[in-house]
Design a binder for these strands. Sequence first.
DNA 1: TATTGTTATACTCTATAACTATA
DNA 2: TATAGTTATAGAGTATAACAATA
Lengths: 138, 138
Amino acid sequence: MAEEDLGALLARSTRRVIAEERPLLDELDLSMWGYILLSRLSRAPAETQLALATAINYDKTRLIGLLDELEHDGLVTRRPDPKDRRARIVSLTPEGERRHAAARSAIKAMEDRLLAGASAADRRRLWRLLADLSDDSA
Amino acid sequence: MAEEDLGALLARSTRRVIAEERPLLDELDLSMWGYILLSRLSRAPAETQLALATAINYDKTRLIGLLDELEHDGLVTRRPDPKDRRARIVSLTPEGERRHAAARSAIKAMEDRLLAGASAADRRRLWRLLADLSDDSA
DNA sequence: TATTGTTATACTCTATAACTATA
DNA sequence: TATAGTTATAGAGTATAACAATA
């Protein structure tokens, strides 16, 4: 049989991993985009909502509702930038950090289970290959 | 920095590959789902449209319109199954085979370019890992 | 009664355009 | 005038329900 498409393999793998993540996130009352946003903020607060949207490849208009929910749940805060009162600085609350850490850890355990058949070296190679693939400057 | 999510890496890689595929498919007047469907049929004709839909993970009601287009473009045929006149057997026309082969070859060249940095052994490992990942029986 | 293919409908996700407040 | 955030609206993609023909 002909070698399978890379795109098809990647798409199916992504679907599988997302399917495994969803119940874990449901348990923590997080949407997929909510988790992605918390992950981004766990690395650094966002100077503007616009920068945040582009950083996670999300539409800036949809970001509003997402932030509304996360703020309502006490996971993030929006505060005006004193240097530019048009902009809002978005950051994680302590509860937001906890929630993200819990989600990340549950997801990590699931990933380890999925990759149980792969050696540590295999995983390192996989991570590097995927990182290269997802870098559209290459 | 913390190790990145497998799901995030896969999703970004998938997006990247799809973005590279789209102009190649546009050139051949094929939609992404059209290409996926032709790929499936290039392996074997489909006994029923229902089986075809589930095989490519597509909604059976949306399949109708897709088949209408592909049939109109002369790439596939629907003929009633003589053994069960409810069912329609879907198969590629010669032009459908040609079109699919052209698309597959253009996409293969693109994949080779994206994976230029990876050795043949790396690729084999990647294919096996992704095949395992995408198998939800595991 | 159950199943294949189909149509009609509703719903979700996403993108476009227009508005406000600051700069 | 230009930009950050927001709202309202329209569009694509997807799923649900109901129908006709055949088994």
